[in-house]
């Protein structure tokens, strides 16, 4: 892997002028392919039957003013469902800092299920608002 990636770096190091740092080159793939997955929070039943299951499931417990886990790290894939299974003893809200963004209202009861997808690759923080904690950072990779 290391050797393969030498080539683009070498090309870039030679080819990019200083000003080139400020101006990105043309993309190789258009962004239009994201729009088909933009229907956020669709149930997993819409996935084609037999498709590889890359669902990411995170179990979250909120109890006595403490959330578990915090600052966890999980992998996820663009367009694939991400599920938060939440048990809580207090109302709160969960903010997913992705593109598109999601907000879920947490009620004071067990077995709540929030499902969403992320359209744009990146590191996505999932935050619990009232307790002011980051539950998990999702590393969302392209498909």
């Amino acid at each position: 892997m290391t050797r393969l990636s030498l080539i683009p770096i070498a090309v870039a190091a030679v080819g990019l002028s200083l000003a080139g740092c400020g101006s990105p080159s043309t993309p190789s793939a258009g962004p239009s392919e994201t729009t088909e997955t933009s229907s956020a929070a669709t149930p997993s039943a819409t996935l084609p039957v037999g498709a590889p299951n890359t669902e990411t499931v995170i179990t979250v417990t909120i109890s006595g003013g403490v959330v578990t886990p915090t600052n966890a790290e999980e992998q996820a894939v663009v367009g694939q469902p991400i599920v938060l299974e939440v048990n809580s003893d207090a109302p709160d809200s969960i903010h997913v800092h992705s593109v598109p963004a999601h907000t879920f209202d947490v009620a004071a009861r067990p077995d709540q299920r929030f499902e969403f997808t992320v359209d744009v690759p990146g590191q996505v923080d999932v935050e619990l608002h009232d307790l002011n904690r980051t539950i998990v950072t999702l590393t969302v990779r392209p498909r």
Binding site: L16, S28, T34
Partner: peptide, 19 residues
């Protein structure tokens, strides 16, 4: 809004390291 860099991580990484 075109997420041209995020959609092409290899391009973004190359630009970052080059910068």
């Amino acid at each position: 809004v075109v997420y041209v860099l995020s959609m092409n991580p290899a391009l973004l990484w190359t630009i970052k390291v080059a910068c």
